[in-house]
Nucleic acid binder design. Sequence first.
DNA 1: TTGAAAGCGATACCAT
DNA 2: ATGGTATCGCTTTCAA
Lengths: 373, 373
Amino acid sequence: MIGLSATIHDVAQRAGVSIATVSYVLNGGPRTVREETRRRVLQAVEELEYHPNLTARRLAARKTKAIAVILGLSATYVFSGPYFSELLLGISETTAINGYALTLETYRSRPKDRQSFEFFHRVLTDRSVDGAILGLVETANLTRLQAILEGPTRDRLAPFVVLEPVADDSPFNRVVTDLEVSIRAATLHLIRLGHRRIGFIGGDPTYLSGSLRPAYFRQAMTECGLPVEDELVVNVHGTQAGGAEAMQRLLIKRPTAVFAANDMLTLGALSAIREAGLRVPDDIALVGFDGRYAEHIQPPLTAVHIPAYDVGRRAAEILIDLVEGRITQPWKETLRSELILRESCGRLLNRTFSFVEGFTGLHGTESSAARLA
Amino acid sequence: MIGLSATIHDVAQRAGVSIATVSYVLNGGPRTVREETRRRVLQAVEELEYHPNLTARRLAARKTKAIAVILGLSATYVFSGPYFSELLLGISETTAINGYALTLETYRSRPKDRQSFEFFHRVLTDRSVDGAILGLVETANLTRLQAILEGPTRDRLAPFVVLEPVADDSPFNRVVTDLEVSIRAATLHLIRLGHRRIGFIGGDPTYLSGSLRPAYFRQAMTECGLPVEDELVVNVHGTQAGGAEAMQRLLIKRPTAVFAANDMLTLGALSAIREAGLRVPDDIALVGFDGRYAEHIQPPLTAVHIPAYDVGRRAAEILIDLVEGRITQPWKETLRSELILRESCGRLLNRTFSFVEGFTGLHGTESSAARLA
DNA sequence: TTGAAAGCGATACCAT
DNA sequence: ATGGTATCGCTTTCAA
């Protein structure tokens, strides 16, 4: 229980002014206050150890100066890898710089819980924040959100930025990375090293990224005139356990290389390979997604690096710009990812391979790879 | 900008009742409402797509159903390791289960920012949350907080739980782990393996844990009758960079083993050893603190494991109990840590070594170690 | 069983 | 330059 503390009335009384004056002094405007009065008010504030009630302030001001991060998967999943920590870091530094509070809403998909759509929807409508960043939104929920955005009650929803790879012509504000490019590059890298039977471990396809990443992979293979064996493309729960399970299945078919579509899947795949008594890259090549550990594990992993910090930072910046009316919806942004070559594909390279303009396919890869060799 | 949405008045009008009735229906009490009336209200809610304004509700109810996590070091540091992700996971699942919102406050120590004490103090006084969990509090700030807790304005501060190893007779609510025990065990483990010149890398001594961990180490050495060379005990910024720097310094003195006092320090120490062209454990033994990666890196690390998830969970549970008046301050809790034996000390063990009652020092270690061999 | 109205603690408009 | 007061959207007491 919090005890009684001074209110704006107490301060006003002690300083012998009205509460309006106190408010103006404390907010530095919009009205200007005589210096002498100002000092009396500030002294009263000091003596009473007055701290404005943020809730009252939010109600009166009709804005909260807070944003929410809403993650649609259970927190257990969300925090299991370094990706979301970095994302959160980018978001939290940005909100701090701009004077916004940050609330964290994670959805637990236990039986007794609300439907996940209600979960998103509540945060977007209860006015506890000025806007939100939505991550890990199932495609079905994106569809429902889109329907609202295209309907008449659109602006009863707080503005929000999604971190899912929604279409360019959708009504969402969006921040993503160019995984189409880097997944293609990684695939071409494997092909160039001589691999033809390549396995792909994708995440949960109820999410857009779960369905798009394998598609990007297939596309790259097809582009090079290589067939894709359906049994070599698997989708599992995007966790370490999922990655291990998927790899066990793949090992039966014995591809010469495997590509895992996120950081935790990669770790899981690696441990399954080890448990099967195989070695990377001698027995099987592995390309993954990169967490901060990629260079510490054995062997150092060739992996796609997602600039999670920047994704978070930009999402927050865009959201705040939206909230404060500096930009208008829908706003789309795509950041660059990169493939970092280490040792898990049988090469001893450790260089960064950036996707600059002009890199468009096998041809580009060949020259880049040549440059690295 | 959020558009106009229905308020409780709109609902009341449409249902032909007073706002009080609407409120009681929505909150399921404390007053009971006739079933027929209830249904009319719920229908109006449905038709108007009414969502209560959380800010107004908080102001009127004089409680926010929200708690804050306040971390006293810059977010960059905080999220650089897996420790705080897990901590946050434990906290967020607990708040979700109990219907509390979670806000995340991270202090950025840039020149223009508030003093860090003001930062803590503001959150504890602005009534935006019902309580807070404080981590990474500098000892100087703990002292100032303690002064308030022991003074007359104590209950103008929201209740809070600290994650620092404050004394048992201090007025704080506290959740920590028994690092005195596990640091001792790790030290004894090294001694038992024959090491005598052991280095210790501690973190920033402006934090209690930065000063206590080296002290626990020294104590364990002394207990075994071993001298501690002062140059072998160093304190650095508790990051990966700090760990590397410390290890470089230590390598000049060439201890046969090194103990690093947190997860990031451990990684940094490891990379410095590598860069010096040395190998673990052949050239130098390493004991560290354990992140989720400890088993994936090479060699798998013998390390102290802190149950970060449980620390977070218990801190949140205790805080909520405090807020809801089920327990009274000060409340202290100490969770168990454990030493996990892997390969970085020159053994091929990979067993868990729990600190159960009866384990009290070298004698216990000897029998346990014997059991493991 | 329900309504009217008094807060909650601020912001900001309308006066003077 | 300042005071008075309506208002924000709820919860809850007091009456009926």
